[in-house]
């Protein structure tokens, strides 16, 4: 009796907790509402299954608990029932998987209109790079990294000269413009994680990973690291600010380009003039 009641109570409390507790995801600030939708679909399907199975179990425990004289029913298997249950389960699984795969296809297909930016992680801080006027990020290599060239840009690459380098500052992005975020790490694994954007991806030293999103509301969003990267992991923070286009242009005008930095400036003094402050 107590056992059956507890099982029912577990289902009730779980459902109530889900419905009325204040803990839910942060308001979204990107185009990935699809992900939230898929998640809610998954919640409904799995929640129904959980409630159904546990309540059925509670009923069985209540109805068939041992009493003197009770004899268990003898039934080794029931092919029909098992086939039905398998088919239903497969259907439920497909109902979750199909939207998941469709959204994943979108997630990995970067729209042509996206501007490329780069986030570079190191223990334990974030740096950013914008492509500058030519719209292209110059090449880079970890071996080029020096105090003068903290992101390891290639000083011989003309596309690198006008790249805007933001070291230790905040990243600004214009509202409504799709961004492909290229991710690079100079030391260990990191993960560029802004909860409001939903999208995230690991940064792996030795390779460039990416994800894309479109900011859908202005504001200031905190960046966290989501892949254990050493003792400073919990304090590896930064900010992304989503600006209205005019504010963004104003901010961009104040930034330094690679050509303006010692490492870029020395090598490419000539091109630095034209690629200088936009």
């Amino acid at each position: 009796m107590i056992v059956a009641a507890s099982l029912v109570l577990i289902v009730l409390v779980s459902v109530m907790f889900h419905l009325v507790s204040p803990w839910w995801w942060t308001p979204i600030a990107s185009n990935w509402g699809y992900i939230d939708t898929t998640l809610v679909v998954t919640f409904w399907i799995t929640g129904t299954v959980f409630a159904a199975v546990v309540l059925f179990m509670a009923w069985c425990v209540f109805r068939y608990r041992h009493k003197p004289g009770r004899v268990a029913h003898y039934e080794p298997e029931s092919k029909r029932l098992e086939i039905w249950l398998t088919a239903l389960t497969a259907l439920g699984v497909a109902a979750m998987l199909a939207p998941g795969l469709v959204v994943w296809k979108r997630f990995i297909t970067v729209p042509d209109a996206a501007t490329e930016i780069e986030v570079v992680a190191q223990q334990w801080s974030w740096s950013y790079r914008l492509p500058g006027e030519d719209g292209r990020l110059g090449s880079s290599d970890v071996r080029q990294i020096s105090p003068d060239n903290p992101l390891g840009l290639n000083p011989h690459d003309r596309f690198a000269a006008d790249d805007v380098v933001i070291e230790g500052g905040d990243l600004h992005l214009p509202l409504g413009q799709p961004v492909k975020v290229n991710l690079r790490s100079v030391d260990v694994l990191h993960d560029f994680y802004v909860p409001e954007f939903r999208a995230k991806m690991d940064m792996v030293p030795g390779m460039v990973t990416y994800f894309w999103f479109t900011p859908t509301r202005t504001g200031e969003f905190e960046v966290l690291c989501a892949e254990l990267c050493g003792t400073g992991h919990g304090w590896m923070r930064g900010y992304v600010l989503i600006d209205a286009p005019a504010d963004y242009e104003a901010w961009l005008g104040e930034q330094l380009t690679f050509a303006g930095l010692p490492a870029g400036g020395v090598r490419l003094a000539g091109t630095a003039e034209e690629g200088g402050d936009p």
Partner: peptide, 13 residues
């Protein structure tokens, strides 16, 4: 099932 479904895993991982 949340975490196995690739795109739902992205925000939760």
């Amino acid at each position: 099932l949340f975490l196995g479904n690739v795109v739902v895993d992205v925000p939760l991982s």
